[in-house]
Design a protein around this nucleic acid. Structure first.
Lengths: 271, 271
DNA sequence: GCGTAACATATGGGATACAATCTTGAGTAC
DNA sequence: GTACTCAAGATTGTATCCCATATGTTACGC
């Protein structure tokens, strides 16, 4: 955390009664919820590396950058007119969030999750979001659910006139906002990492007939939460995430461009 | 990740059959499993900021540094004879792992989790380690369990002639090693954050009669895993974590050294 | 002609210098 | 006497420089 815990409490969770949250422990995240961030008092425009973090992530999710691409410090510094210092901070953050991979003396490349990893991440999300949606259902008020519903509407409308990558990001926002209702910063922090990773995976493994994170399903989840039946809320969320996974082509040797995957048969002999 | 996934597979999990884990996505962690790290081919001594990360974390867990203390960049740079550049990186990592809190233009301080946060972290651990121990039970072999058992024995013996902080760290190692059996890097990554945080919490909230993470309970967990009954393994782990929480004094206004907590009655009037 | 080794270039890692910001204390005015 | 202002010191943020390492190229020897 670090910077953006504040708006979690002040902006997203205006109904949050927790005054003791103070400024104690803070995450160090970045991306996601930027729509929320941008609606801040304006003074807090975020540090430079934050901007870089967002820009790079956006580029990845918009598929302007694909996995495997090398992110050279000099070039990024030149493009964004900053020094390498801030580039390196941004890259370090991205690497911590498992978006890029930093090898010592080798530089940073965009991570290319293999099918196994993709499944692993989806499994982690089912575990965490299952618990989160349960807690959120308990803590939710009619008002907060309405607010959540409006968010999904906004996203749906925006997606209709924008392109894919943006849609990917917006549908991820829903999951983060939902998590914020649960008032569990720890789990939400993990979700903030998992959601962009999932978006990256979707960008890589999406099939032709893939229509991202269905907004209808998001509405369904909210409706079930409104009933207060935690067990069912968990089930619906689990199904939703399962649907996402099912729409992907994780059949195997995909992840085009991965040298190791491409020549797996050779490498296999060595071992 | 980034650096130290390698030894997770090569050293800890010598029985791991996963060749496809490769060097794809990497964590960015540090501490924990250092005993393993130190037994590396020697060439990989870790980057400098890694060392700083470990040193600071060790100091915290050994209670040579307490929560709330400010970590000045210049002083750390001076002490460890490095430039502020590497100090900053180490601090950035620590902040990402929720060990220190970085405020812009204000510097880094050691995080002081309040009781609410402490419970939240323990709850997260129960959730994640419950799933992890289930997967680990399925994937475990007699050999890997024996290796795990030997680790606990080593730790028990070492604790007998060493002091508290070290014991805290070693008992945390068990949980990480156990998680490595589950072969779920994502969840293990989160656990690698949660374990030091838990140690920090124990250091703060431990009660007089607190004998850390009982080694007997660790042996019990292994024994249940050996039976292969996943459901029971989960139950035992859950109980173990519950025991840890029960031994803490989370009754409320603790967290010594916190100005806000110390004068909460004054502040309360304002609101 | 092929393979290996030395060299050159590109790129990342670390250190230092400088700028921006915050904190703290003194001084002054009300 | 209190509160406000301003300035000095301290501390963090940013940029640039230099060095270490990796990779690509060329030349030499077999």
């Amino acid at each position: 955390m670090g910077y953006n815990l504040e708006y979690n409490s002040d902006q997203v969770l205006e109904s949050s009664p927790l005054p003791m949250a103070r400024k104690n422990q803070v995450p160090m995240q970045g991306r996601i919820l930027d729509s929320v961030v941008s609606s801040l008092p304006a003074e807090q425009k975020g540090t430079q590396d934050q901007r870089l973090y967002n820009e790079v992530l956006d580029a990845i999710l918009d598929r302007r950058l694909s996995p495997g691409i090398k992110l050279k410090e000099d070039e990024l510094a030149d493009i964004f007119s900053v020094s390498r210092t801030v580039v390196r901070r941004a890259l370090l953050r991205l690497s911590h969030d498992h978006i890029v991979d930093i090898q010592p003396n080798r530089g940073a490349t965009i991570i290319r999750p293999d099918a196994h990893k993709a499944r692993e991440i989806l499994r982690a999300r089912r575990l965490i979001e299952g618990a989160v949606v349960q807690e959120a259902t308990v803590a939710a008020t009619p008002e907060s659910l309405d607010a959540l519903r409006r968010c999904v509407e906004d996203e749906r409308d925006q997606v209709r006139r924008q392109h894919k990558g943006t849609g990917l990001r917006l549908s991820g926002d829903f999951h983060i906002r939902l998590a914020s209702l649960a008032q569990n910063d720890t789990l939400m922090g993990y979700l903030k990492e998992l959601v962009p990773q999932t978006s990256l995976i979707i960008a890589i493994y999406q099939t032709p007939h893939h229509t991202q994170c269905s907004h209808q399903e998001h509405f369904d989840i909210i409706d079930v939460m409104a009933t207060g039946v935690t067990r069912q809320a968990r089930a619906v969320m689990d199904k939703h995430l399962q649907n996402i996974e099912d729409k992907l082509d994780l059949s195997g040797k995909r992840s085009p461009g991965d040298l190791y995957a491409a020549f797996a048969h050779v490498k296999a002999v060595e071992n």
